[in-house]
Design a protein around this nucleic acid. Structure first.
Length: 307
RNA sequence: CGCGGGAUAGAGCAGUUGGCAGCUCGUCGGGCUCAUAACCCGGAGGUCGAGGGUUCAAGUCCCUCUCCCGCAA
């Protein structure tokens, strides 16, 4: 089948890859323009990198609105458009181009967690289940009719990175399995229950600081929900320290925010009388490292209290 | 020319006004212990990121370069 693909980050690559492996003809890959990455260098989206490696035609319009992208897409004559974390709202005209429609792979169980950061938000909220929904695109954000969905548990040891990877795989699978029905016109269309819709707002750096008055589990969810960006953080000696990984500890009498060095990592007291062990962190200007390595150089005096 | 931090033993760091290169962990050997991720004693391990300059003497001061990281998402 002739398919146009629109996607940008790593999450979308699994689906594009699957389409290629299934033998579909990818008539065009639309992805966001290269953005400044670290220190001046332009960084290309993960999807572009993959597309180039397969010699697929790549297009990076600034906007999908306007005549130019529209006539471009028409000239490619896709039968179906597949969207996965593209990063732009698509105009009606673009959505209407392929005769079989425009479908979207969204990393949540819609109508919950519509929007930009469904995976992270699900973890932050302490959910124990999420999934992927395949849907037809409507003009309103993630509000289109659903075709099918697949659930997966959020395991205690999951963080946003592992969950991203798993959901990307599930999304690719779901897409691959459902395309025949879409082609045959037998794919179901289930409207979303608007009354149960929730939104997953985009992440920002302001979310980083850890609130030590929260219960231990909530702090853990905060840490694992924000990797690899913006990451949970704590302020130590006036310096921001990113927390990459933390584990549950036992009860403590220390006041919330109190730190102690220990074999398992840096024990930090939380608001509910329990503590967590920070096991992996990254100091300002430094590399990501294990807590034990960090403790070798910067000794934390027992009882340091964080804000 | 976007702003800033960094590169010193396998890892993480310290190194004052230039004057014998150090600390913690790990590692190796020995000891102690019913036992240990514990404790004690001892050892190995460094072209101080690269190149040039100043100096009797440079990890340290000056110039150039490379690489890493954070912010700007």
């Amino acid at each position: 089948m002739k398919i146009a693909f629109m996607g940008t980050p790593e999450f979308a690559v699994a689906s594009l890859k699957r389409l290629v492996e299934d033998g579909h003809e990818i008539v065009g890959v639309f992805t966001q323009p290269d953005k400044p990455g670290n220190r001046k260098q332009l960084k290309m989206p993960a999807v572009k990198e993959y597309a180039l490696s397969k010699n697929l035609p790549v297009f990076q319009p600034e906007k999908m609105r306007g005549e130019e992208p529209l006539s471009l897409l028409r000239s490619l004559a896709p039968e179906l458009s597949v969207v996965a974390a593209y990063g732009q709202i698509l105009p009606e005209a673009i959505i209407a181009v392929p005769p079989l429609g425009t479908v979207n792979i969204h990393a949540s169980l819609l109508p919950k967690y519509r929007g930009a950061a469904p995976i992270n938000r699900a973890i932050l909220d302490g959910e124990n289940e999420t999934g992927v929904t395949l849907m037809y695109i409507a003009s309103r954000l993630d509000a289109g009719d659903m075709i099918c969905a697949r659930r997966t548990p959020i395991l205690p040891e999951d963080d946003a990175e592992t969950l991203f990877a798993r959901l990307a795989g599930i999304g690719a699978e779901l897409l691959s399995e459902t395309i025949p029905a879409i082609a045959a016109g037998t794919a179901p269309r289930t409207p979303q229950d608007e009354t149960r819709a929730t939104y997953a707002k985009m992440l920002s750096r302001e979310l980083s600081p850890i609130d030590w008055s929260s219960p231990a589990q909530r702090v853990i969810d905060h840490v694992r929900g924000l990797v690899p960006w913006p990451c949970a953080s704590m302020l130590l000696d006036g310096k921001t320290v990113k927390v990459w990984h933390a584990e549950r500890g036992g009860a403590t009498n220390d006041a919330p925010g109190t730190l102690r060095a220990s074999k398992r990592g840096i024990a930090a007291a939380c608001g509910d009388g329990n503590c967590i062990f920070v096991t992996e962190l990254q100091p300002e200007g430094g590399k990501r490292m294990s807590a034990s390595a960090w403790l070798n150089g910067k000794r934390v005096s027992a009882g340091t209290v964080l804000a």
